[in-house]
Amino acid sequence: MIAIENARIRRALKIIIPFAAIPFTVLLGGTVFSARSYAFVSLAVAALSVALFISGFEKKQTGARRLVIVTVLIALACAGRFIPLIKPVASIVIISGIYLGGEAGFLTGAFSALISDFYFGQGPWTPFQMLAWGLVGLFAGLSSGVLKKSRAALLVYGALAGAAYSAIMDVWTVLWYNGAFDIKLYIAALGTAAPYTVSYAASNVIFLWVLARPFGQKLERMHIKYGI
């Protein structure tokens, strides 16, 4: 375990994970866990993708200020998960992706999922949540030019991200329950999750509508004042 603190082995991980570990889990899923191979492979690949991203981040030189600001955003997103009914998590993830870049967005999403699950219960869904929220932040960062300029695009992105998050998590529910993908069960799962989907999408739109501008101004100000 101590060996992973070694920079060379960490660099090797970047090659091992996509070219050895992921094919190996697919093989393992086909032979050992054949009854649930889809669920096993998807969970393992989700966890490994997050690990791959973090090992890339580990290698990079990140300034202390940037690191702490990302941490502050993560903590704000987690604290926001305690608000009943409406959840500002995804909107904070989107905002951090837009103003601090895709990598910061991914980290905010992934760690918000991990840390808030300390309070709401860890489970096999944690890697999926980390990946789903991380991707919401990553794509927000990649399309930050458009999202910064047009408020309509931002709100549409927020609504889509809320719906997509729910849809991705339901894929996992079905895979895990049924062993293979089943459209009937998926539709049933989407149906039972519909209130949550609507609340995710709606709270994203509400929070982005209210928060995006002042929050963005605060982050811009940090940029001007401290050069982050």
């Binding site: 101590i2 992973i4 690191l67 941490t71 993560i74 760690f111 300390f118």
Partner: peptide
């Protein structure tokens, strides 16, 4: 053990 930087983020966020 796995990633010192991730652990730092984790511990600070848990405190925040």
């Amino acid at each position: 053990r796995l990633s010192p930087k991730a652990a730092l983020i984790l511990s600070m966020a848990l405190r925040y």
